[in-house]
């Protein structure tokens, strides 16, 4: 018992030896601040990356959509080729009404020379007449009367050839030729140079 009292007295001494005012150091708040800033930058970078991936994916999907759309050919609205319609070159298409425009598609070879297919007019002086009325005009009526009146006095030329009438027809033909209509021109907007 005496030992216990002595022990308690000793403990009380130890308690009494503790200073009454304990100095506690303030929390170091400043150490955690830089760590929070680095996390925020990482999150922002990840968000930006995700946003860019979404935008890029959207553009890529759009391109693929366009490509897929262009590859699809509606069998109902697809225009028939000349071969499908059973037409040849120069035949009027009953569906489009175009003359000689529809031919079967053939693979294009740019460097392959193509021989002319239009027949060349033969070099003869007497080809078959193109225009039905291509005959010399008869002389004017007044000249006929004059010739008849003078028939008894002087010989009439064997054939009167009306050069003026032929020249007039040829002038008309040549007026129909407008070289400027053969203008290669430009295809606006397409930028392909024709």
């Amino acid at each position: 018992m005496a030992k216990n009292n002595e022990k308690n007295t000793k403990n009380n001494k130890d308690v009494d030896s503790v200073p009454s005012a304990v100095q506690v150091s303030p929390p170091k708040v400043s150490q955690s601040k830089p760590q929070e800033e680095s996390h925020g930058g990482l999150i922002a970078a990840i968000v930006a990356l995700v946003a860019l991936i979404i935008i890029g994916g959207g553009v890529l999907a759009f391109v693929l959509l366009i490509k897929a759309k262009n590859k699809y050919v509606d069998p109902i609205t697809k225009p028939k080729t000349g071969a499908e319609e059973g037409l040849g070159v120069g035949i009027t298409s009953p569906s489009t009404g175009e003359v000689g425009a529809i031919i079967p598609e053939v693979p294009i070879t740019p460097t392959t020379p193509v021989t002319p297919t239009v027949p060349v007019v033969p070099d003869t002086l007497n080809p078959p007449p193109v225009v039905p009325d291509d005959t010399p005009d008869p002389p004017p009526a007044d000249e006929d009367a004059e010739d008849a009146a003078d028939a008894a006095d002087q010989p009439v030329p064997v054939v009167y050839y009306n050069f003026d009438a032929q020249l007039s027809r040829m002038d008309t033909d040549m007026e129909g030729v407008n070289p400027d209509k053969l203008d290669s021109g430009e295809i606006s907007g397409a930028n392909v140079g024709l």
Partner: peptide, 16 residues
């Protein structure tokens, strides 16, 4: 048109 001209030239030459 050019073909017509050629035909008429033939006709004129033959007539003359």
């Amino acid at each position: 048109h050019f073909n017509n001209i050629l035909s008429r030239l033939s006709t004129i030459a033959a007539g003359a």
